[in-house]
Write a protein that binds this DNA or RNA. Structure first.
Lengths: 208, 208
DNA sequence: GCAATCGCCGAACAATCGTTCGGCAACTGT
DNA sequence: ACAGTTGCCGAACGATTGTTCGGCGATTGC
């Protein structure tokens, strides 16, 4: 009955409820390690175990192998990113429709700047997940869908877009992503405000 | 007199002319290996030696250590990229000023698609190079300067830009880079034409 | 109170990594 | 023709990697 491998995160054993505490502790330790040190190559079984204060062998009771650990970390971080962007969208002024787009993208930038290791990990692992109907579904498809919804609101509120709302969302998201990626492969001491300025410039290029 | 370490590429020994042949053969083998397999972690001393058909120890007569090899590969690839973009710019129709921008960015995309390993390597290594006067000088500063020159030509030719020419160049380059980065972290079977279409959409958003 | 179960760990395994050393073969200068 | 130099390689070293195995201590069920 054990060894019930969950296909989404390759969780193994431990399907009895409260025992997941150490599992999230492992993930937290991995994220912490990934933020302090540089990239994905810093994510080693021994390193995560040391950061979590447990033995390397103990990790294998929560993750089948290292690939499963990496998948778990990626999924964990995407959840955090989605939550941050959703929160920024909801806590913005409801009347300022384009301001809600800005809030979302600013949250995206702040998250990307604060979690450089997450980016290295994401850029290093190809995702080939697909919907049951065959349509592709990467982990940040819901993110750009959220941006697309914000742009749709702009359109309904009468804002003039230079692109269809879905294309506008892709344009803004891709541009922002490119700016952040360039930040991460460039100097670490660059001013974070520059990035937010770029995002504003990009949005104002699309929206009016 | 040996061990004359060249600071730009950390070349070591072998300053007698023709002996550089094997050095470029090593770099070619590294690029080949980097293109076939995935990312920067595939770039091992033993792997490069095997791909070049030589012994692992022989590499140390052309590069001081692995870091020097990586620096050499990165520099080598940036030179190839610059050459490809310059060639695309020069061989385009001289009268079609915005067409020359498109040609440059399309060349950038084609190079990035054809050399995925180069991207992984670039995104994984922070560059902190600076000019003698203290201004930062990343390896792709000349690239965006080339795009900026093309946009300046557009401005002089009477094309209406929605941004100052230097900001327009940054916008187009960053957006293109983001699209390519997303391609590399997404499905490998994505149609390359999609990316070129996106670049055209981005340019037409800036130029008119 | 006893036996079974379960999470955890210390230790070891094989593989691979970057790197060094000593010697071999070929070329050079005289 | 000989001695010296030089590029290259086979073999090894130490470190680190992912992973497995056997047992220990605590908790659970009866």
């Amino acid at each position: 009955m054990p060894d019930e491998t969950d296909l989404t995160t390759q969780r193994v054993r431990n399907p009895w409820g409260q025992g997941d505490r150490l599992r999230t502790e492992i993930l937290d330790a991995a994220v912490r390690l990934l933020s302090e040190l540089g990239g994905a190559e810093a994510l080693t079984i021994r390193g995560v175990a040391r950061a979590a204060g447990i033995a390397p062998a103990s990790i294998y009771q929560h993750f089948a192998d290292k690939a499963a650990l990496v998948r778990g970390v990626v999924e964990y971080d995407y959840e955090r990113l989605s939550a941050v962007m959703r929160e920024a969208d909801e806590s913005a002024d409801t009347d300022d429709v384009v301001g809600r787009v800005r809030a979302q993208m600013h949250a995206y930038c702040r998250f990307a700047i604060a979690n450089p290791g997450h980016y290295r990990l994401m850029l290093g692992n190809r995702r080939v997940a697909r919907e049951p109907d065959g349509r592709p579904r990467g982990p940040l498809v819901p993110v750009v869908e959220s941006v697309a919804a914000a742009f749709e609101r702009c359109e309904r509120a009468g804002a003039r877009l230079r692109l269809p709302s879905d294309r506008a969302a892709v344009m803004v998201f891709v541009g922002t992503h490119g700016r952040v990626a360039l930040f991460h492969s460039g100097r670490a001491d660059e001013d974070a405000d520059r990035i937010l300025q770029f995002v504003d410039e990009l949005i104002s290029l699309v929206v009016e």
